[in-house]
Design a protein around this nucleic acid. Structure first.
Length: 460
RNA sequence: GUCCCCAUCGUCUAGAGGCCUAGGACACCACCCUUUCAAGGUGGCGACACGGGUUCGACUCCCGUUGGGGACGCCA
């Protein structure tokens, strides 16, 4: 049997990390078994579906590299097929028109809740003879007795009593099909072998199995993933910060870091933490998935992100930076190389690298006051002259020069390195000063050093 | 409220009855390294929710309690 999985989001908002994880697991499983991964847009709710959301989903999937083998398919383009199925169900008396008003339904619900019952449709119109009155919604005749066993690859066998289920609506009063009908038809038509989705759908599954069986369709395998929670143990929402995947891109996360983080949320392979895409594909399996909800932990994502910034090819990381290199300064790849171990995100890396980018230096007043003092004026002036005289500008010669000047004035290396650092970067923090000077370049280093000397003289 | 799922360090997890003095990772703390900040190294802190069974023996199996999550739409 060929493995065919699908990711079927509804375009009613951004693509969030929970959705990405189900997409990733579906994608991995298909890849692992040489099958197909299908993207399907469930846009039957025309009131809430938007093109912007569709774009967000496509953009997010593309950014993460979760390529679909088939699709995207749009349910709104398959209405004819759904109508055909509904008609068939009606003619076989497996479905019926329901004329109950929303008011009656609401009353029913309230009453059931009050008497500590599970709210559900009471089947009032179910036994009406198939009249000519073809108005109202269409409901599926769910079996009244017996049970449905959901064989879940993650949670095991789960038994539901049909008496718990009611007759769900498969077509709205305006004739459009609803979710339950469309998923079932699509999973059937698209020959989906494994339905991998969030466990918020677990309760829907027995209903869908009943529908599938009424249609004479084969029932796919199911795998229900637990939800992702926020750091407070509540379901992940906007309150917990970035929810849209594209937010993560904007915040400077690498796709491989997000994917690696997400794959470890609920799934594991011994003690391994770092997984390349290839490893994920070969190692991934349902039997190693945890059934319990997992809390999203940004610190671990940050750690992984830095790991990938540090270990990735500088050129490739550089290509993802939202900035341009200064023609007179270092290449972005050089900046990445030197900054990787002190940046957890691309955004942070850029923020820490302003002095490489040719923009006017911003001085950190506190650092200036602390390190650009009159006492250092003479040594710094000497250093400036020595550096200006350097004919072979590289980290090693710069380092030697600093050392010589430090010895000359009997200063510890740090006593001269910090003033130099403030002079050429504007602040007290940067990569090693010799390598930093080298990247900034001789002309700019000298220029900034002279400026710093002026600042000291001015303060006197 | 009813039904469903779940339950190991703060967080993600390892653990398929004796391998457990419960392992790893993130975070946190200390020390080392060091021209700043990092990165790195070493060490530390820290958990089997509770109560009953089953068993010679339970983190592991069963039941219950508690707790958390989900579902109960003419949303998906």
């Amino acid at each position: 049997m060929t493995v065919r999985t699908r990711f079927a989001p509804s375009p009613t908002g951004y693509l969030h990390v929970g959705g990405v994880r189900t997409a990733l697991f579906s994608w991995l499983y298909a890849r692992k078994h040489g099958g197909q991964f299908i993207l399907r847009i469930e846009d039957t709710d025309r009131k809430r579906s938007t093109q912007a959301s569709v774009d967000a989903i496509l953009e997010g999937m593309a950014w993460l590299g979760l390529q679909a083998d088939e699709g995207p398919f749009y349910q709104t383009q398959r209405f004819e097929r759904y109508q055909q199925v509904i008609k068939q169900l009606l003619s076989e008396e497996k479905a019926y028109y329901c004329h109950c008003s929303k008011e009656r339904l609401e009353q029913l619900r309230v009453g059931q809740m009050a008497s500590k019952q599970k709210p559900r449709y009471d089947g009032k119109c179910r036994e009406l003879s198939p009249s000519s009155d073809k108005t109202g919604v269409i409901r599926f005749k769910n079996p009244k007795i017996g049970q449905v066993v959901v064989k879940d690859l993650i949670k095991g066998n789960i038994t539901f009593n049909n008496s718990e289920l009611d007759d769900l609506i498969i077509a709205r009063a305006d004739g459009t099909p609803t979710y339950h009908l469309t998923v079932v038809v699509d999973d059937w038509d698209m020959r989906i072998s494994h339905v991998i989705r969030g466990d918020d759908h677990l309760n829907n599954t027995p209903r869908q199995i009943n529908l599938l069986q009424a249609l004479g369709a084969t029932v796919p395998q199911y795998a229900h993933l637990s939800m992702i929670l926020g750091s407070d143990g509540q379901r992940l929402s906007k309150r917990h910060g970035a929810v849209s995947v594209m937010n993560y891109k904007e915040e400077g996360y690498l796709p491989e870091a997000l994917l690696n983080y997400l794959v470890r949320l609920g799934w594991s392979h011994g003690d391994q933490e770092i997984f390349s895409l290839e490893e994920m594909i070969t190692l991934f399996d349902f039997n190693a998935i945890h059934g319990s909800p997992a809390a999203f932990n940004i610190d671990k994502l940050l750690w992984l992100n830095q790991h990938y910034i540090k270990t990735g090819k500088p050129e490739e990381i550089a290509a993802q930076l939202p900035i341009q290199a200064d023609p007179l300064g270092p290449t972005l790849a050089d900046i990445v190389t030197i900054q990787a171990e002190r940046a957890k995100t691309l955004k942070e890396l850029v923020h820490n690298s302003q002095y490489f980018l040719g923009t006017p230096l911003e001085y950190d007043n506190k650092a200036v006051r602390k390190h650009l003092k009159p006492a250092i004026l003479i040594p710094l002036t000497t250093l400036c002259q020595q550096l200006e005289a350097l004919s072979n500008w590289n980290a090693e010669t710069i380092h030697t020069t600093i050392q010589v000047v430090a010895q000359q004035y009997e200063l510890k290396l740090g006593k001269i390195a910090q003033p130099l650092r403030v002079a050429i970067t504007g602040g007290a923090v940067s990569p090693p000063i010799d390598a930093t000077s080298y990247l900034i370049g001789q002309p700019r280093t000298i220029e900034r050093l002279k400026r710093a000397i002026e600042i000291i003289e001015h303060a006197e």
